[in-house]
Simulated scan of single mutants.
Amino acid sequence: MHGQTSIVEEVLNLNPRLARISDSQKSSPLHIAAEEGHFKIASKLLSVAPQMCWWRDDQGMNPIHLAAMNGHVEIVQHLLEESSLPAMETLERGQTVLHLCVKHGQLRVLKVLVEKLGELVYAKDDDGETLLHLAVRCNQLETIRYLVDDKTKSVENQTRNSMGKTALQILVESPPSSTTDSSYSEMKNLLTNLKNESIFHFQVLPKMTDITMVVVVLIATMAFQGGLSPPGGVWLDDTPSHKAGEAVLATTHPAKYRHMSNANTTAFVSSIITIFLVTTGLPATHFLFMASAMYAMWVAMTAITVSYGVALSVITPEERGYLVVVAVAAVVANVFGVLVVYAVVRKLHLSWKRKKRQRQDLTADGFIRRVFYWIFQHLETRGFLRADR
């Protein structure tokens, strides 16, 4: 406790078991050395009883938690060299050692831990709060700047806590009392820019690859089945005009069979390329490869659609062909109709939020707009619509 290194070393030489004895607060000597920042003592204790780096006191903290929250970088580094696993232990309410660093403003320790622990930077506590949420609540401008500017972490601003709020929304809801607060403006700009760039967040890419894999495997299966079992089947015997096993469609409709075969092959090959790109693991960390995989998937989707259209035109009687056209037109009209309605409602909702924020008179707009404003207000009041959406 008082940093008497020589006495500690002498006592440990006489009785090393004392390093494993805790006090009434369940604090071991290593806990105290880590909290007080006595590096040499902590090093000696760790060499005598390395297992104590896992020991928790009555607050649920192990030595690295105490060293981190008090900003003792050297001790944190030394404990990490012994084992990084204790640093990954969560505390009460699900907080991590990184949450402690942000809460107590220990940016230097945070940088060391992020470099060593990597993905722990995305951890949430039991309230769904990320480091970015906590940094905003604690008004930690330097920490926000570090989390946002460090592109190797690509912290996601769109992550919501258990209340459904992003870090930016928490900041906006707690404006400074003084309009000249430059730190508030800078934090808002940083979080706003991060929101705009979040499409390139490499954590989103693995989620996209999962969806991509489902789609392309389905397309590859369809294309494979369509290639082996074309519409009309295959000839079962040899004749002067064809051989057994050849597609009937190639003889009866050669032009359409060529189009369908080309489209089917394009869909299958594009799907295989996408599967190859995804399974190599490269898309998860490189946007270029992810973009290539997405492009190949779009080509596969387009090609399988063309193949389906050609096959359908072959097996559909000419007098009923118009029914296919009507069905396709109805589906397309419905899809685009829903998108147009969504765009209009979304625009009205954004207008309503902006006017509420600026305290403008909502009754000054036309009747249709006022009806929508009334709907939005009632949906928000009943909890069906969040104010941030």
Rank of each mutant, 00 (worst) to 15 (best):
101 C>W: 00
273 I>A: 13
154 S>A: 14
77 Q>D: 10
269 V>N: 01
99 H>M: 11
37 G>N: 05
315 I>G: 00
288 L>F: 02
354 R>L: 08
240 P>Y: 10
119 E>C: 08
245 G>Y: 06
340 V>D: 11
230 P>M: 03
343 A>H: 07
150 D>P: 02
11 V>H: 01
171 L>E: 05
372 F>M: 14
209 T>W: 02
183 S>I: 04
145 R>P: 05
346 R>S: 15
211 I>K: 06
37 G>R: 00
177 S>L: 11
202 F>R: 08
48 V>L: 09
241 S>V: 04
83 S>R: 01
171 L>C: 07
170 I>V: 09
357 R>M: 07
373 Y>G: 09
23 D>H: 02
60 G>Y: 14
29 P>L: 01
359 R>V: 11
328 V>L: 15
333 A>Y: 09
382 R>P: 02
244 A>N: 07
105 G>L: 05
129 E>Y: 10
141 L>Y: 13
100 L>H: 05
130 T>P: 05
53 C>R: 15
183 S>V: 01
291 A>R: 12
14 L>I: 13
74 E>M: 10
225 Q>S: 15
102 V>M: 10
80 L>F: 07
70 N>Q: 15
237 D>C: 12
376 F>L: 03
3 G>I: 03
24 S>L: 10
300 A>Y: 07
50 P>E: 08
205 L>Q: 06
